[in-house]
């Protein structure tokens, strides 16, 4: 699983951090999403899928490979 984020789409709702805080954070200065790990381990995949599903602005994309 590989994750990409589009910070231009981010609206700072924080759903990703709530779903998967080992993978996503929010930048202290601009409040937008920060990707901590772009290829998370299998253990985190369910959380990451929640983060993608709950993101209100479509800023998170998962690429399965």
């Amino acid at each position: 699983m590989k994750i990409t984020i589009d910070r231009d789409r981010c609206v700072g709702a924080g759903q990703c951090v709530r779903a998967a805080d080992e993978v996503f954070d929010q930048d202290d200065l601009d409040g937008c999403v920060v990707l901590l790990v772009s290829r998370p381990s299998e253990r985190l995949s369910a959380e990451v899928r929640d983060a993608e599903r709950f993101c209100p602005s479509g800023a998170i994309e998962i690429h399965d490979a």
Partner: peptide
Amino acid sequence: HARQRRMLIPSFGVK
């Protein structure tokens, strides 16, 4: 909307 919201989101973050 994005211009206005971006001014505010750091103040409403999860942390």
